[in-house]
Amino acid sequence: MMKPGTLILHVAARFLVPLQLLFSVFLLLRGHNEPGGGFIAGLVASGAFALYLFTFGAVMTRDLMRIDPRNLIGIGLFLGMISIFPAWFQGEAFLTSQWWPVMLPGGNEIKLSTPLIFDIGVYFTVFGSVMLMLVALTETEER
């Protein structure tokens, strides 16, 4: 099904993938205050690789991703699970959010928190799940 990609698509994909990934991280981190969040960011990241997949095929996409999508799912679920426990160690109910504000040099403050870890978990799970399906389907197509 995959024709050898056109020149425009080739070039565009190479430039768009990093941009889209960067955008997905941006969406992930701003999610708590502005529209965005782990789910949306995960979808955007998958969109980036889906474009690459259509252009260069499954083998090259796997090469580029380096990590197997199944492992991404695992990482995501693991992060989601470990975000449960900090509250427990504090003697509070599971999943109560914990905040650790960190002052950066230059007067900026970033807030690390369990919801952030959780959101990153969601990001990886969504990203991994979509990529798993897309790559698997493409691979059977190429066979």
Partner: peptide, 16 residues
């Protein structure tokens, strides 16, 4: 929950 985006706060905190 220190977040202005209520949808996301619901997703990752209220209803985590």
């Amino acid at each position: 929950a220190y977040g202005r985006n209520i949808v996301n706060v619901i997703l990752v905190d209220y209803r985590a």
